[in-house]
């Protein structure tokens, strides 16, 4: 029995190393890659939340993003974590010594994404591979509106979605690992919290929340499954990765995130636009 097991193990090991060597010989300049990128830069966050104010609020901040990418021969996996804590101002924000004292918003933006895509075609003339897949994403956009004398109301959207993930990767120079990546993500079905709000205090979803019990769990239970009729969300991403050595590289990234979420019988909308310009350090394994 031990002999049989040993033979199987040896076969597996040698067999797999053979298959790897065959694979290597056929793809010349491409091997499966694990890319870890830590990025930062500048984000421009723009919000119009009609539940809270008729005015647009916007601000810039330095976000932090961590991305893991697996680049296989036929597929791609991506995990992204994004954090952005921004102070937003409006046309009526009053400041004192450059500090906002009234009519400003403290905005926390957290994102988590996992996407998987499979190669569907290759455009040889353009050195471009096209992928199609799905993306699972979770987003929390929480805002505290400071009106006057430190008095504030809270507003938030939280959405967890499953949607289409379209990705193209263009090799910029043959025989190099440098590539341009363009992706578009559109969630098709989302589970959203904090819905059906009528004003800062009122929503049939949390009017009955018992403050003495677990609020998070009650909020979670009171979510809604929505699709394009209530929530249009889109995220586009263009990044260019170039390597200065076999394992170290840089990534330049532009990311656009937008959603429009209808509240209370579509009477009000929260529209949020987030532009990010990021530069990151990439480690390739």
């Amino acid at each position: 029995m031990k002999i049989i097991t040993s033979i199987i193990l040896i076969n597996i090991i040698f067999g797999s190393s053979n298959s790897f060597s065959q694979e290597d010989s056929t793809r010349a300049s491409f091997e499966s890659q694990h890319l870890f990128t830590l990025s930062s830069g500048i984000s421009l966050h723009t919000v119009r939340d009609e539940i809270m104010s008729p005015l647009m609020y916007r601000g810039t901040k330095i976000p932090l993003s961590f991305m893991y990418r697996f680049r296989g021969i036929e597929n791609r996996h991506t995990v992204l974590l994004y954090y952005d804590n921004t102070e937003l101002n409006s046309s009526i924000t009053k400041t004192y010594n450059d500090e906002a004292i009234s009519h400003y918003v403290k905005n926390l933006n957290l994102n988590f994404e996992y996407s998987f895509a499979k190669k569907v075609t290759t455009l040889e003339d353009f050195n471009t591979a096209c992928f199609l897949g799905i993306r699972f994403s979770g987003m929390l956009n929480m805002r505290n509106y400071y009106f006057i004398q430190g008095l504030s109301h809270e507003s938030a959207e939280q959405m967890t979605g499953l949607g289409i993930h379209v990705l193209t990767e263009t090799t910029i120079q043959q025989e190099s690992n440098n590539f341009l990546r363009v992706e578009i993500n559109i969630p098709c079905v989302s589970y959203v919290l904090f819905s059906e709000r009528y004003n800062a205090n009122v929503s049939e979803k949390f009017d009955d929340i018992d403050l003495e019990k677990n609020i998070l769990w009650q909020l979670f239970k009171n979510g809604d499954i929505v699709t394009f009729n209530k929530l249009f969300e889109m995220q586009a991403d263009v990044s260019y990765s170039f390597f200065v050595s076999n394992h170290i590289g840089f990534a330049l990234q532009y990311r656009l995130q937008y959603y429009s979420f209808a509240q209370y019988q579509d009477l009000f909308h929260a529209r949020v636009l987030n532009n990010q310009f990021l530069i990151g350090l990439t480690v390739k394994l």
Partner: peptide, 17 residues
């Protein structure tokens, strides 16, 4: 072309009253 969107936030989220 994506940078174009950077300056177009009012066009996307709507301008102030």
């Amino acid at each position: 072309s994506f940078l174009f969107f950077y300056g177009c936030d009012e066009m996307i989220v709507g301008s102030d009253p």
